[in-house]
């Protein structure tokens, strides 16, 4: 039963992840005054990459990098509950908590960074360095917000955090914390203005430079699932989770559209700019939010 539940969670994350990714391309095309590709385009891309005749590898660590990255994404999906009540779609959330998930979110990228490094391509490492440098400022506001949420609920457990919001969601109870976490979340989603990691004109796609064929396909698939996990995390922490699947879809959709629209209109920050911005504005918001707690 649990196994079925887990598979269903993965399927939902995979399906909605690709749907949202397709939607993202469509919506940003509309913002640009274009029509954009079909909704299933990203899915087609990933399938096409899986069926390329050949994929280049640089050795076993390069091969394992995307696998570790994807395993991290799968774990993220499994350890975040989809719903705030009932038995189904809870996954393994009772075996972990928010702190575990916050760290799991970095495990995959670090594993992939090992693969990137083993390719010996300097552009890949430049991308990784940019990512890790940005990460140190990116996580700070999110951590501050998560700390506020955990202290408020008196627990790091997702169920209790969501239950604590049954009367008033954290977004309204702690608007400053939500603002801090939301700006971080934009960065976690890899949206503008925090998309300097894979800038094609500067670092030649960054970490993804050497990945071709099935490796790129796996990375795309995990990125779709991972985005859904991040949406889930935000919904659970600040919007009180979801009672049923419909509400979950509605809430993640709203959050996703907000992130997409903001991402479509901002220009890219350089690494230094994004670190300085993230330490200045959202961190300050987070600190004030914690002080008001």
């Amino acid at each position: 039963m649990l196994l079925l539940d887990l598979l269903l969670m993965l399927l939902i994350a995979y399906g909605f992840g690709f749907l949202y990714y397709g939607l993202y391309r469509n919506l940003s095309a509309r913002v640009h005054g274009r029509f954009g590709p079909s909704l299933a385009q990203s899915f087609s891309d990933s399938i096409k990459l899986f069926v390329k005749e050949e994929s280049t590898t640089f050795g076993w660590m390069f091969y394992l990098g995307p696998v570790i990255m994807a395993s991290g994404a799968v774990l993220n999906v499994l350890f975040i509950p989809f719903l705030n009540q009932g038995e189904s779609l809870q996954g393994l959330s009772s075996y972990g908590n928010l702190i575990v998930v916050l760290y799991l979110m970095v495990l995959g990228p670090l594993g992939n960074a090992l693969g990137v490094g083993s390719s010996g391509n300097p552009f890949g490492v430049m991308g990784v360095t940019r990512g890790l440098t940005r990460l140190l400022a990116l996580e700070l506001p999110f951590y501050l917000a998560a700390i506020g949420v955990m202290i408020d609920a008196g627990s790091a457990d997702f169920g209790i955090i969501m239950q604590a919001q049954s009367t008033q969601s954290n977004m309204f109870a702690h608007p400053l914390l939500f603002a801090a976490a939301f700006i971080s979340f934009l960065g976690f989603m890899g949206k503008s203005p925090f998309d300097v990691v894979g800038a094609p004109q500067e670092v030649y796609s960054g970490p993804a430079t050497e990945f071709s064929g099935k490796f790129l396909a796996l990375l795309m698939s995990q990125s779709a699932m991972f985005s859904f996990a991040k949406l889930l995390l935000m919904v659970n922490l600040f919007w009180g989770g979801a009672d049923h699947l419909g509400e979950l879809v509605a809430k993640t959709f709203v959050l996703f559209v907000a992130a997409t629209f903001i991402g479509s209109v901002y220009a890219r920050f350089s690494t230094v700019q994004s670190v300085e911005f993230l330490i200045r504005i959202p961190t300050l918001l987070g600190i004030v939010g914690l002080a008001l707690l």
Partner: peptide, 9 residues
């Protein structure tokens, strides 16, 4: 198992 075959440089 993917259709794509890995080739090592």
């Amino acid at each position: 198992l993917a259709h794509s075959k890995a080739k090592k440089v």
